[in-house]
């Protein structure tokens, strides 16, 4: 991902009000981490499993934060239980910021990623989690705000899956 795109992504999260991010780092979007770390408007929570990325972010949301989880798309599978129990059943807004591997738009796609990436969107659909795939910087800031607004309105998770230019 070009440095400018990483900056816009982080600025977009901040402009959308996101101020707490739990994360398990991955390859495609990792440039956002040092940027968020150097921005005092973000409180960061490194985790050991995407399942707890969701529960910790949910706790922060209930405590008044606008929380997001930065994870790889395989983390959607890992966190299904938390997404259902805390995200959906309890009804806690979260933004999932997802490095989307394995799709058509994944510039790093290979046999390692294509199969495990194929189920990310069907799983989100099965969980009734609204989501969008973002391939480039066109309207990025608006798309992030829309996703945050949707999560708050629905009292549940929403997801942005970053691929294309974000996966370079």
């Amino acid at each position: 991902m070009e440095a400018e795109l990483a900056k816009r992504l982080v600025a977009g999260l901040s402009d959308a009000g996101v101020n707490f991010v739990s994360y398990l780092p991955e390859t495609r979007l990792s440039q956002i981490l040092p940027l968020m770390r150097s921005d005092s408007s973000f409180q960061l929570a490194p985790v050991s499993s995407e399942q707890e990325a969701v529960t910790i972010a949910a706790g922060a949301t209930l405590g008044g934060k606008q929380a997001a989880c930065y994870i790889e798309s395989t983390g959607i599978y890992v966190s299904c239980y938390s997404l259902v129990t805390v995200g959906k059943q309890l009804g806690v807004p979260l933004l999932l910021v997802v490095g989307f591997l394995g799709g058509f738009q994944d510039q790093r796609n290979s046999f390692l990623y294509s199969t495990i990436g194929a189920y990310a969107r069907p799983v989100l659909e099965a969980l009734a989690i609204p989501h969008a795939v973002i391939e480039n910087g066109d309207g990025l800031e608006t798309k992030i705000k829309n996703a945050v607004r949707a999560a708050n309105a629905l009292r549940g998770p929403s997801a942005l899956l970053f691929a294309g230019d974000f996966s370079l």
Partner: peptide, 21 residues
């Protein structure tokens, strides 16, 4: 009191609350 409905989630939610507050 926040009475969660499932197992395996309270530690994470409690940690998030404590970090936020």
């Amino acid at each position: 009191n926040l009475l969660l409905g499932q197992m395996g989630c309270a530690l994470g939610v409690g940690a998030g609350l404590s970090l936020a507050l």
